[in-house]
Design a protein around this nucleic acid. Structure first.
Lengths: 339, 339
DNA sequence: TTGTATGCGTTATCAT
DNA sequence: ATGATAACGCATACAA
């Protein structure tokens, strides 16, 4: 049983609970004589004492818990992000508690409620659709909150993001430089800023170059490989000449699309070039290796954790939004037109 | 601020805190008059009251939190498992808190310490190497604990697992039925039961059939695609005739191996057949689509959550170990010998 | 049906 | 350097 309490330890040594408390505390153990400190520590070990964080939190007014909400655990991109968060937090003795909203607004609301009831010291969320803006603003008003990966323009919530517009442009410029003039994009959900930004950046760059850009929307809510399959079907059903190059709004969509096109007899990159987004693990190991736009997932997570920590420390004046820059990674899924 | 307390609500209505407490409690609100109940509820909503789970937990002796420890968040197999856990738990109002050990024993120990200090009501862990047995036994003696996915023979800890021996045998029988007689297996870490079970099942079935089985060990600690690359290198360096069929101990290893073999000029399945394990998302979308052994990830998670709940309820007598059966999924990465 | 009183395990404040 | 004591916010046994 974890029923050993501080009082038990104190009694065992023959000191007062407050002395025992001081002796075991990391910041106040200098206030106690080296001797009693050792005796208390020994007793604690011997009795198998474990501090009760609940009680401690109740008294001190903070829990040392940071709530981390992710949209979709199946998105391979999230792994590095969570590691970045966990590393930055663990270093300071905080405990991240992660939950998945499956990109559902209802679940997000429930999760936020529970986390607030848990009295988390801060929240980091990668789940934020346009429809969640009011909810998250309310949450942010109750506890330090930061958005990671996804932005929510106009929410005023501190954000560690990346420049999706630039990312979309990078994809476009790459395909244009390969001579493609009929392009399409396989769009992610339109109520998420990441995809709107990618779409805008891509479309603008393509049109500025005088090339043609076709936007293909999915009827599904999540940017998964299934969405990629569906989008590829629609691409195939398009009237007129088929685009020779495609920008998929993330790697999963790209992989789903490549597969569907292949089943329809089209080879990537010979018949059609495809650029993905995120550079998730394994994209370099598949056939064809995916040309994609790389995002610094680990770094995003790390910075998000650090930002929430500075907000918790009351450092409201510090920079409250950071935008990392994506980077194009050229592999085998894109090829010069006509080769 | 979430500083609204139960007393505030009670004062606002003009009742005692205990009445307010009863009114807002789900199991005892029948003890209060319908009228005051409504008034308390209204006041709570109006003031933005949030129950303080820390305080409640301190008083009631349980937190409603279940600690969930996963070995590796980058393993795509874990997504469905976590969903199973979250669904089963959420339905009963419990909150899963997930953490990743990165398959490190040190981190696992730290995580367990923190979770015990948090006074979680139960722990579900998919991280368990042979070296962690003592630690986990100690943890299990303090709080209801169940192993999910990975087993730890001899630990006596309740487990929701799957039959790895059968899984290995399924892979072997499939390859043997295709006419292969020189087989190899790309082994996962040997201090994890899953891989030992797969190895045994495979080797026995192969040898029983009078065929040849070569075991290839990796020098790395984690069964990732990098390990797959390394194992494939070793496969290529093998003296004598090359195996014509390979059992990779999971899908990531398989994908890494296929890629490395391809770079060396060998095509899967034409030159070499490969079977994976887990059937993670996307394996059916890559080229070649992976033949693999499917595990019911969601079900594993769901059952693990239910098992930990019955343990928490003190139902110690109930079945404490469940073993699910894997299933072979034949796709394009395996082919009849000589075609 | 409601109120009173007490304690869950800690830590902070004030003494000593 | 240590002890006594009072909260933190809530839930319960008991009294009314």
């Amino acid at each position: 049983m974890g029923r050993v309490t501080l009082k038990d330890v104190a009694d065992h040594v023959g000191v007062n609970v407050s002395t025992a408390s001081r002796a075991l505390s990391h910041d106040r153990n200098s206030l106690v004589s080296p001797d009693t400190r050792r005796r208390v520590e020994d007793a604690a070990r011997e009795l198998g004492y474990r501090g009760n964080l609940q009680a401690s939190a109740l008294r001190r007014g903070r829990t040392g818990i940071i709530g981390v909400i992710v949209a979709d655990l199946n998105n391979p991109f999230i792994g590095p992000v969570l590691r970045g968060v966990a590393n930055a937090l663990g270093g300071r003795g905080l405990l991240p508690i992660m939950t998945e909203s499956r990109d559902s607004s209802d679940e997000l609301a429930q999760i936020c409620d529970k986390m607030l009831a848990q009295r988390v010291d801060g929240i980091i969320t990668t789940a934020g659709r346009y429809g969640d803006r009011a909810l998250l603003k309310r949450v942010a008003s109750e506890v330090p909150t930061v958005l990671a990966v996804r932005q929510l323009p106009g929410s005023g919530i501190p954000t560690i993001g990346h420049d999706d517009t630039v990312g979309g442009r990078l994809a476009a410029e790459h395909l244009l430089s390969l001579g493609h003039t009929r392009l399409a994009q396989l769009m992610g959900p339109e109520d998420i800023w990441s995809f709107e930004g990618r779409a805008n950046g891509f479309r603008r760059a393509v049109e500025d170059a005088g090339a043609m850009c076709t936007d293909i929307q999915a009827a599904v809510r999540l940017p998964t490989s299934d969405a990629g399959c569906q989008l590829a079907e629609r691409l195939l059903g398009l009237p007129g000449e088929r685009p020779t190059a495609v920008f998929a709004h993330n790697d999963s969509i790209a992989i789903g699309a490549i597969d569907t096109l292949r089943r329809a007899g089209l080879t990537c990159p010979d018949d059609i070039s495809i650029v993905g987004f995120n550079d998730v693990p394994l994209t370099d190991k598949i056939l064809p290796p995916l040309t994609t736009v790389r995002l610094p997932g680990y770094e995003l997570g790390r910075l998000a954790a650090e930002l929430v920590l500075t907000r918790i420390d009351g450092n409201d004046g510090s920079a409250n939004t950071v935008m990392l820059t994506p980077e194009l990674v050229v592999r085998g899924s894109t090829i010069e037109l006509g080769t």
